[in-house]
Design a protein around this nucleic acid. Structure first.
Length: 361
RNA sequence: GCACAGGUGGCCGAGCGGUUAAUGGCAGCAGACUGUAAAUCUGCCGCUCCUUGGAGCUACGGAGGUUCGAAUCCUCCCCUGUGCA
């Protein structure tokens, strides 16, 4: 812990096997072993210290055993810094049409070829061990919104049982949970995930139980699934005080620029979101002046940079007119430049917040 | 010159007597996107009016014709492609 503000904001750093991560931090999502459209060296130069990978996607392709044989995910994708793998729990939610949930686990059909697979907490851990990220996530069920109370309770029961099993399995395979690669990796951390729908008492109950289990960090999941922002905020505010101060707190799947700043100031250490990368590919740029739909005709001859206040490599060199043209033409470079800018913008927000938290403390 | 095949809204392309302002796709315009089945999805897309819903006008190469009714059938003309001279 480096600094703490009266409002609960934290400026800290976490020593992970591959990287000491300065927090609060925004993590770019690299589902299939790539932060879409951005090469690893560019991510490094943008200052990304930790990125995500996804258990579900990498298990299906190229296969976790393949990645294990190739020396783990870090080596496979040539990423020297920290990584976190999501457990596949979110896919249980997002691929709902193709799944069947039981206490034991989840049977689902591959979105790639329709083949049938069965995921259990143990299996998710095995896959994540093979991938070898610095942080693995417990296998959970992301409760949908809206979910009535009985449904939220049932979903929560599953998530807590699976958290226990995830932890037990990972701990009992301690010897395997060590990756030594040229980047210096070692032991793997495991985070538990707080669910509970939009019910504060369920959230509290879940948080307390997970803390008893003693995870290496705690995530708040099941948010940004369609609920009003006020609810998101309420759930986060409810859970944060229950989590141990000396461990990372991670809100999964958020958010818009103003959201991540707000949550960081409340004491959230880690966040991730596909928004900056996906929106970039769709032509939406986040700037200090607000959202910029670069496809808009009014930018056709606009010679100013995407964001005049931004110092990223894209804003230093290219005009809105050019980015619009690339987008209109469907050029690959469009996705690359848009994504680099959005990521730079998000990382810049966090950099600013970190400084500000430090100054306030 | 002869023989086939064609000429449809910005483009490509369905339709081949009424349910057709005319299927689709592209392009264009606007919007969405929150632990990535997403370089995806949604809406608008002949013109002019009025309030949703409508009203009117103009449209399927051109000119005639048949028919209650034609982008669709007939005649002539113009143009394009291919083949043969």
């Amino acid at each position: 812990m480096i600094a703490e503000t009266a409002a609960g904001g934290r400026r800290a750093q976490f020593h992970l096997p591959h990287q000491t991560v300065q927090t609060p931090v925004f993590m770019s999502v690299g589902t299939a072993g790539t932060v879409k459209a951005v090469p690893q060296d560019t991510l490094e130069s943008l200052g990304a210290e930790i990125i995500l990978g996804n258990t579900y996607h990498l298990y299906l392709r190229p296969g976790h055993e393949t990645i294990r044989r190739l020396g783990g995910l870090h080596r496979f994708i040539s990423w020297p810094r920290a990584m976190l793998t999501d457990s596949g729990g979110f896919q249980v939610f997002s691929l709902s049409a193709l799944r069947k949930v039981s206490d034991e686990g989840v049977r689902f059909r591959s979105h790639l070829d329709g083949s049938s697979h069965f995921f259990t907490p143990e299996h998710s851990m095995d896959v994540q061990i093979a991938l070898g990220a610095d942080i693995a996530m417990a296998f959970d069920e992301c409760t949908e919104y809206p979910a009535d109370r009985p449904r939220a309770i049932e979903s929560l029961r599953l998530t807590m049982a699976w958290a226990r099993r995830s932890l037990d399995h990972l701990r009992s395979h301690g010897d395997e949970v060590v990756w030594r690669d040229e980047f210096g990796g070692q032991s793997q951390n495991l985070f538990g995930i707080v669910q509970g729908g939009m019910y504060t008492d369920l959230r509290r109950q879940c948080a307390e139980r997970l803390v008893e289990m003693d995870f290496d960090g705690y995530a708040i999941g099941g948010l940004s699934v369609g609920e009003p922002r006020a609810l998101t905020l309420e759930m986060i505010a409810e859970v944060l005080p229950l989590l141990p101060k000396d461990k990372p707190r991670y809100v999964m799947g958020v958010g818009y620029p103003d959201e991540i700043e707000q949550y960081a100031r409340m004491g959230v250490d880690m966040m991730d979101c596909v928004l900056p990368t996906r929106a970039a590919r769709h032509g939406l740029l986040f700037t200090s002046e607000g959202r910029l739909n670069i496809k808009a005709k009014r930018f056709a001859e606009d010679q100013s940079p995407p964001d005049p206040a931004c110092n990223c490599p894209v804003c230093r060199r290219y005009t809105r007119a050019y980015l619009r043209h690339l987008m209109q033409s469907g050029e690959t470079l469009s996705a690359i430049l848009n994504t680099i800018h959005n990521l730079a913008y998000y990382l810049g927000i966090m950099e600013r917040v970190r400084r500000s938290l430090h100054a306030e403390a």
